[in-house]
């Protein structure tokens, strides 16, 4: 039997879920953080492409939950629950949070990458989801793809090759 694998794509400030044999990918993470929540036994994973640390920054009329660390992660947990996942089995891997440009400025937005990473970690801690691996910081963009069947997160960086964590 031929198994066709599909790649589920996640845009910026977006989230989605993939089940074995499919994989899930998000492209061009800079200061944004890609958060993978997965259950290695059910072989299912959710990916959130977080853009900002805290929903208190939100000034739009309707809120896009996936945009913020503190709303995106709970929303993903809820979505995985609907797929029959028990939250205590979830594990996390994260990547991104780079500092793309160095400026001599005190503007807080320029530290957005590290702030996103801190906010994601705080939120994972709050929901008691263990962080298994991370590839964060630096000053390069990343494209990440998670394979729920192996639990490996594949990370591609320009001019620095490919790694699995």
């Amino acid at each position: 039997m031929i198994i066709t694998r599909q790649v589920v794509k996640v845009g910026i400030a977006d989230m989605n879920v993939a089940k074995n044999p499919d994989t899930i990918r998000t492209s061009g993470l800079g200061s944004c953080v890609g958060v993978v929540l997965y259950d290695e036994f059910q072989k299912i994973a959710g990916l959130v492409h977080v853009m900002l640390p805290d929903s208190s920054l939100n000034r739009t009329e309707s809120i896009n939950l996936a945009k913020f660390a503190d709303t995106g992660i709970p929303a993903m947990i809820e979505q995985l629950k609907l797929e029959g996942v028990q939250p205590f089995k979830l594990k996390a891997k994260i990547a991104g949070g780079a500092q793309m440009f160095q400026f001599a400025s005190s503007r807080d937005t320029l530290r957005i990458g590290p702030r996103n990473v801190e906010a994601v970690k705080a939120c994972l801690l709050q929901f008691k989801i263990p962080l298994i691996a991370e590839e964060t910081g630096g000053s390069s963009g990343r494209t990440i793809e998670f394979d729920p069947s192996t639990g490996l997160l594949n990370i591609r960086t320009v001019n620095q090759g490919v790694i699995d964590i």
């Binding site: 492209s27 061009g28 993470l29 800079g30 963009g141 320009v158």
Partner: peptide, 9 residues
């Protein structure tokens, strides 16, 4: 670098 990483900033 990648467009996504640059422009999202």
């Amino acid at each position: 670098d990648m467009v996504g990483a640059i422009i999202s900033f």
